[in-house]
């Protein structure tokens, strides 16, 4: 593991930015012999304002929805040119992964390209001002799923993206959290060393979009894991092989929710308590399913 970060400081991310942490941990896991593809999004914008760059590894951005296709072209080209060696990593947000880029991601995994896709999931379109995505959790207020007189926030459950990637037959799918950097670095390293398309889904609290103090990114991330709302697990060849147990550290979801402005309405509006109960049920289901 390289001690000097391959993502240079001085980027334009917010204080407490989740993307910067996720990118740094990913590069710590992958090492310097890699090529990174990023779709359009916060990470791209904050790290590469021409003529500056924060990347100490080769990096390419093409469009919002095509990072996986670009990665597959890189992989095929390196093979054709006899230059195999560099690890190929595509790293993008939840919108670029779960919504607009899903088709390209699915195609690249079906074709079996040897690369690792890292989804930095901050659960909404943060770069454009906190609009709802398929990663937005139930009940969260965003600028396009706001709480209002007849709305208690996002009415849909978060898309189960890791399960979709497992269904593609990926040899390795893992979830990670910014609160557990060693775990994430190890999982990225493992993913990049396994032949074939591998997938890491990183839960990444966004200070701006979720509404918490810039010093609390890690605490919020940890609470998501301890409530059971974000289970940490690995799936190898379709089977769950490792789970991070919560054990006695288990916390109720309202402790997680009340840390964030996006769930504030659940504590002030009529009907909020019922919604919190539904979110608790989601956490309980995770705890049961994964044996957390």
């Amino acid at each position: 593991m390289k001690s000097i970060s391959l993502l240079a400081p001085g980027h334009r991310g917010c204080a407490g930015c989740c993307d910067a942490m996720a990118a740094k941990f990913t590069l710590m896991g992958a090492g310097e012999d890699c090529i990174v593809v990023s779709p359009t999004g916060c990470l791209e914008v904050m790290t590469t304002p021409y003529p500056e760059t924060s990347w100490d590894v080769p990096w390419i951005h093409s469009l919002f929805e095509n990072a996986s296709a670009v990665a597959s072209g890189i992989e095929a080209a390196l093979k054709a040119l006899g230059k195999q060696g560099p690890k190929i990593i595509a790293m993008g947000g939840d919108g670029a992964t779960m919504d607009i880029g899903l088709q390209a991601l699915s195609g690249a995994f079906e074709r079996g390209h040897n690369f690792t896709y890292v989804c930095i999931d901050n659960e909404a379109y943060m770069n454009t001002g906190v609009q709802r995505s398929a990663g937005t959790p139930y009940g969260a207020s965003t600028t396009t799923s706001p709480a209002g007189k007849v709305s208690l926030g996002n009415p849909r459950l978060k898309k189960n993206m890791p399960a979709i990637m497992v269904a593609h037959g990926s040899p390795y799918v893992a979830t990670t959290s910014l609160a557990y950097p060693k775990d994430m670095i190890a999982k990225v390293k493992k993913a990049t060393e396994i032949e074939g398309p591998t997938y890491i889904h990183c839960h990444a609290p966004c200070t701006t979009g979720w509404g918490f103090d810039t010093s609390k990114t890690v605490e919020v991330a940890r609470m998501a894991v301890q409530t059971g709302l974000w289970p940490l697990y690995e799936v190898e060849d379709g089977k769950v092989t490792k789970v991070r147990k919560i054990g006695n550290n288990k916390r109720p979801v309202d402790e997680y929710l009340k840390m964030q402005r996006r769930f504030k309405h659940l504590f002030t509006m009529e009907g909020g308590a019922e919604e919190i109960a539904k979110i608790q049920a989601i956490a309980d289901k995770n705890i049961e399913e994964f044996g957390l």
């Binding site: 390419i60 093409s62 296709a69 670009v70 890189i74 080209a77 088709q103 195609g107 079906e110």
Partner: peptide, 16 residues
């Protein structure tokens, strides 16, 4: 899986 990806893949291949 689409023309969009057909050309996008070539962005990656051309870049290397």
């Amino acid at each position: 899986e689409s023309e969009f990806s057909a050309l996008s893949a070539l962005v990656g291949s051309s870049a290397v």
